[in-house]
Amino acid sequence: MGIRFGLLGPLRMERDGQALPVAGPKVRTLPAVLLTAPGEAVRVDALVDLLWDGAPPRTTLASLHNHVNRLRTALGPDGARLRSVPNGYLLAVEPDELDLHLDAAQAIYAEEGVEEGLAMVLLVRALSFLKDGRLGEGLAAARGSVELFRRAEGRDNPVALCTLARLHLATGDAALAEPVFRRYAEVFRRELPSVVPTTLTGLGASLAALGREQEALEALAEALSTAEALGDRSAAAVALHTTATVHACSGRTDAARDCWTRALALARRAGLAKVTDDSLDGLESLAAS
């Protein structure tokens, strides 16, 4: 029979019909979150927010790493399925090993009125749509997630709101995105430093789109320095690529070339295909001009 995962009802992890021992609420929540996106990376910031409900401990990353190791131990010979990827984790699952995928999850949570579960599914969908460039569908999913989290938790969910802001920015509505990124950059500086670089990069891109270049460069410089302090290559690469784009749009070719060259090196090391391709395109455009 092998290993099986279940999200219908309480979380289940079984091997050959026998339940796997998973102790502690955080260790049980971790696979539940990962299984909403089977075989896909879930970012550390999303995991932290969902595991600690927006109030993470001071030792957030160490605590998360501890929970990941405990889950790997519980998975036994299948522990290698829980993989570390740049800035996140994924749980490799075959289609016949999981009793619930996103379509079914959304239908079941909607039918049963489980608003927090439905909000989480819609958030995962919104992130997936953003990655695939399906922006209209992403906006609809993110708006639904924001509203459902608000109703279920009685407060705004920062990750859902920032995802919505990223989609607004991608569709050209920087005026809606900018105040959200600005607000949560302040919140995350105090409560969740690991997502500050991504939030500040969104703020910088929004400010640049609004013609506020100096403010944009200041936000992007802080995004880069924070990412470097955290050792987050992926976030640093994205910040550098965004900075290069701002410089290039203002005709500062030397500064743009330097940023794209650095972004390219980091993106290759972090395995970021899109940032790698976009940085190469940027360098080629400078060479051709």
Score class of each variant (00 low, 15 high):
M1Y: 10
M1C: 09
G2L: 10
R4D: 02
F5G: 00
G6H: 00
L8C: 05
P10H: 06
R15P: 02
R15I: 09
P21Y: 05
P25S: 07
P25Y: 12
K26W: 13
V27D: 13
T29R: 12
P31S: 07
L34V: 05
L34Q: 00
L35W: 10
A41Y: 03
V44L: 11
V44R: 02
D45I: 05
D45S: 08
A46L: 10
A46D: 12
L47F: 10
L50N: 07
L50W: 15
L50E: 14
L51P: 00
P56A: 06
T59I: 06
T60W: 14
L61M: 13
L61R: 08
S63G: 06
V68F: 09
R72A: 03
R72Y: 11
T73W: 13
A74P: 01
A74Q: 07
L75P: 00
D78Y: 14
R81C: 04
L82A: 07
R83A: 12
L91P: 00
L91E: 03
D96G: 00
D96P: 01
E97N: 00
L98Q: 00
L98F: 04
L98T: 01
D103R: 05
A107Y: 02
E115V: 02
G117I: 02
L122G: 02
L122M: 04
A126M: 00
L127S: 00
L135K: 12
G136Q: 13
G136C: 08
G136H: 10
R143Y: 13
S145P: 05
S145A: 15
V146F: 14
L148M: 02
F149H: 11
R151C: 09
E153S: 05
G154V: 07
P158K: 06
P158T: 04
C162I: 14
C162S: 09
C162L: 14
H168R: 08
A170I: 03
G172V: 10
G172N: 11
R183H: 13
R183T: 14
E186K: 11
F188V: 01
F188P: 00
L192R: 15
S194E: 13
V196F: 13
L200N: 01
L200P: 00
L203A: 11
L203K: 07
L207R: 11
L207N: 08
A208M: 06
A208F: 12
G211P: 01
E215D: 15
A216L: 09
E218T: 07
A219W: 10
L220R: 03
A221S: 15
E222Q: 12
E222N: 02
E222K: 11
E222L: 14
A223Y: 09
L224C: 06
S225I: 06
S225D: 11
A227I: 09
A229R: 10
L230S: 07
D232Q: 03
A235K: 03
A236Y: 12
A236N: 09
T242I: 05
T242C: 04
T242E: 15
T243K: 14
T243H: 14
T243A: 15
A244P: 04
A244Y: 09
T245K: 14
V246H: 10
A248N: 01
A248I: 05
R252P: 01
A255D: 15
D258R: 12
C259V: 06
L264W: 08
A267P: 00
R269W: 12
G271M: 02
G271Y: 04
L272F: 03
L272V: 01
L272M: 05
A273I: 01
A273R: 12
T276A: 06
D277S: 11
E284I: 06
E284R: 13
S285I: 02
A287L: 09
A288W: 08
A288T: 09
S289E: 10
